[in-house]
Design a protein around this nucleic acid. Structure first.
Lengths: 104, 104
DNA sequence: CAATTAGTTGACTATATACTCATATAGTCT
DNA sequence: AGACTATATGAGTATATAGTCAACTAATTG
């Protein structure tokens, strides 16, 4: 049986990739169809589709069908909270390195 | 040059693995040496060492040497904040599935 | 300095991942 | 129905990852 650790790992893994982070960043303002997403992030349509499906399966995105188009959206605000906290960590580390350099 | 997206991916990747999440969980209460960590999580010493070094490199853990022992600790409270938010997401999803089942 | 203890690292294997190109599916419009 | 548009998927390749066993380094103690 899959444990809690593994479900957490699945969600984190779904976010832990540059192309997927670009998608998340692009979806910040609301849902978008695949045809808007892949040009915006500069990736191939098929590759983008795979990443979208992967994040959908992990429970990070939601999907809505409208005619030919399929709209993806960030499933919950907590997802963005995770990404934002990580951004903060990166900035703190950058600041820390800067301090170290000044000290030399 | 490495971009912000990539640094964020590095941190998330450092957390996105069951063995490493077990380590993070175990380090919640403070620093521990490798000799305490690997029996606690039920992994080989060498494998544990690799994961610890990986997280250290990603900036997720810090390291302190004391005699023969090397103590690892979670580098910042924001790391735990990320993991806790993800735990919340998993619980929300579980609750959501439960609701769906009840509806049937 | 030999023996012991704590941790890291090299070499290897098995599996997973990201990506690409080509093809398939599904909905829309004439 | 046939052409068109939006998305997904099969198959292949290249690279990354997790894990194991054995060998190695470094600090400690007798």
């Amino acid at each position: 049986m899959k444990e809690l650790v593994d479900f957490r790992a699945d969600i984190l893994k779904a976010l832990a990739q540059p192309t997927r982070l670009k998608i998340i960043d692009f979806l910040r303002d609301g849902e978008r169809c695949v045809c808007e997403i892949f040009p915006a992030i500069g990736e191939e349509q098929s590759n983008t589709s795979r990443h979208l499906n992967m994040m959908l399966a992990a429970g990070v995105l939601s999907r809505r069908k409208d005619g030919l188009k399929i709209y993806y959206a960030i499933k919950s605000p907590e997802i963005l909270e995770v990404v934002d906290t990580v951004t903060l960590i990166v900035k703190q580390e950058a600041a820390g390195r800067h301090e170290l350099l000044k000290a030399v």
